[in-house]
Computed example of a mutant assay.
Amino acid sequence: MTDTISRKIVSANILCTILIVCLHARYEYNGVYNIIGTLSDIAVPVFFAISSYLYFEKFDWNNPITSYKKGIKKRIFSLLAPYLIFSSLGFLIFTSKAMLKHEILPCDISSLKDVLVYICFAKGNPPLWYLTSLFEFVLLAPIIGYVVRTTKFSFVLIPLSVCFCHTLSYSNIIFWLPVLIFGCYCSIWWSYILKVFRDINSLYVSCFGILILVFICISFNDIIDRTIPVYYIYRISAPVLFLAIMGRFDFTPPILFKIKNYTLFIYCSHSLILFFLFPIIKKLPYNFLIYIISVVFLLLVSVGIGILVKSRCFRLWRILNGGR
């Protein structure tokens, strides 16, 4: 992997993390906020495509069993440990709030089983589903890799898998199989991709990608049901559009690269911070300016907490940030 590709991946990771925050920080869902939601929906498929690409970039095909075991052990620390901690924090926050306000408890705290189910399914911090799905991908990754490696024409599996996966649950890893195959294909057959597109002007491709993305976001400005097949195709196509755009342009301001080591922490903590932020927002005259301020404030608070934890207890920070 070249330095250019590495920087593009870091840039995409930062932008997609911010888009996730933008998606969940919305208090209203009509008009411009719906367009923001549609644009932000590219984040998760791009995350999965990048994760797939990086996994297979580091996978040792000459020693697959050892590489597979090593990958699982690494993800237990980098994915499952933060998942359990931030899910437990969600449980503590929602339970404490319910007890203080004499509301119905989120689960029966006298039942260890109910508490464990609540934590294991991250009911107090829903965005964490992505971490467990990513771990499921690691378990299935070699199967995807070996199939894609068989032929450079394995890209046909992407549209074929769309036909069978679009009816599945959003949190089901197989739902994201097309983008996982795409990421794998880019890693294994990158030289072939470059050969095919070597004579195509990247500026034209990037501009075309931007136009398509803008058109889609405007077309879906009043969408309510995001489970329809055409929207699934948009989700699955997002990494391709994103790659086409990022191939020529870099929309990440240099200052944002300072948060590159905090993206996972932002992702895991933003929902919990929003729990405290939303009651304040509801008391304000909600408009687009307030929305932007809340997004910026949320990012600053999350990064600020991360910096504080990192400076005071580096070992704890390593665990919370998955060893990154």
Results as ranks from 00 to 15, higher is better:
50 I>R: 10
228 I>N: 08
125 N>A: 15
250 D>E: 13
66 T>Y: 09
279 P>I: 08
201 N>K: 12
305 I>A: 09
89 L>H: 08
309 V>K: 05
82 P>T: 14
3 D>S: 13
78 S>W: 10
69 K>D: 01
64 P>K: 08
204 Y>V: 11
156 V>E: 02
38 T>G: 04
115 V>S: 06
87 S>N: 12
279 P>H: 11
300 L>D: 04
297 F>H: 02
243 L>C: 11
81 A>W: 12
291 Y>D: 00
153 F>E: 02
248 R>F: 15
249 F>V: 07
127 P>D: 08
207 C>I: 14
310 K>A: 06
106 P>Q: 12
129 W>E: 01
234 Y>M: 05
99 M>K: 15
176 W>D: 00
7 R>N: 11
228 I>F: 05
230 V>Y: 14
280 I>A: 08
145 G>F: 08
34 N>Q: 11
148 V>I: 15
277 L>A: 15
298 L>I: 06
198 R>D: 10
178 P>Y: 00
297 F>M: 12
136 E>K: 12
268 C>G: 04
312 R>E: 02
114 D>P: 01
89 L>G: 13
3 D>C: 01
26 R>L: 04
81 A>Y: 12
8 K>Y: 02
206 S>D: 02
139 L>N: 07
298 L>M: 12
9 I>C: 04
45 P>V: 04
125 N>L: 07
136 E>C: 13
70 K>G: 08
76 I>Y: 11
129 W>H: 06
150 T>Q: 12
49 A>I: 03
140 L>F: 15
128 L>E: 02
114 D>H: 13
185 Y>K: 01
254 P>I: 09
49 A>Q: 04
115 V>Q: 02
116 L>P: 00
285 P>M: 06
320 L>A: 04
270 H>Y: 10
170 Y>H: 14
306 G>A: 10
141 A>I: 10
111 S>V: 06
124 G>H: 08
268 C>Q: 00
213 L>N: 02
318 R>I: 01
159 P>M: 13
120 C>G: 13
183 G>H: 01
305 I>M: 12
289 L>V: 15
147 V>E: 03
